[in-house]
């Protein structure tokens, strides 16, 4: 069975999963590259805050009167898979981290578009996250 994200709850859940995985990745990078430990730990902490931010927006805005269960454009979680950090150098790991950030940004953009029909406050929250994540991309680039 091909599984797609049809409901708001699924979209929020998958976002949480992506942020968690991303944070775990930065935890691993902090150990492998102690010279940038602070930066990677900060990025990991941010992941948890981003997850909490979306969950809060959902919890405070959810209402059965809107179309929480009926997204017309389901998302495929397979389109947003994060890569493992298998690089042999800082430069390779940073490339992976950048690709993962772009994947999460793409998910947030798609979720914002889809959730516009689902729940009024969610698109704004996802859009705000995208702005913050683009700053993370700049930070990662500065580490190379």
């Amino acid at each position: 069975m091909a599984l797609v994200l049809r409901t708001t709850s699924q979209i929020i859940g998958h976002h949480a999963e992506l942020e968690k995985k991303s944070a775990e990745g930065y935890g691993a990078l902090a150990e492998r590259h102690p010279e940038h430990q602070d930066a990677f730990n900060r990025l990991g902490d941010e992941n948890h805050r981003h997850r909490a931010r979306v969950e809060r927006a959902y919890r405070l805005g959810v209402t059965d009167a809107f179309e929480v269960g009926f997204t017309p454009n389901p998302l495929d979680p397979g389109d947003y898979a994060l890569e493992e950090f298998t690089g042999e150098s800082l430069s390779e790991d940073l490339d992976t981290a950048l690709r993962n950030e772009e994947t999460v940004i793409r998910f947030c953009l798609d979720a914002a578009k889809t959730s516009g029909k689902l729940l009024p406050d969610l698109p704004d929250t996802f859009d705000q996250l995208v702005r913050r994540k683009r700053k993370r991309v700049e930070l990662l680039r500065s580490l190379t």
């Binding site: 409901t7 708001t8 709850s9 919890r59 405070l60 805005g61 959810v62 209402t63 059965d64 009167a65 809107f66 929480v68 269960g69």
Partner: peptide, 13 residues
């Protein structure tokens, strides 16, 4: 029996 999104929406209301 309602779905979890609807149930959470009910709790919020």
């Amino acid at each position: 029996g309602k779905i979890i999104d609807e149930a959470r929406g009910e709790v919020r209301r």
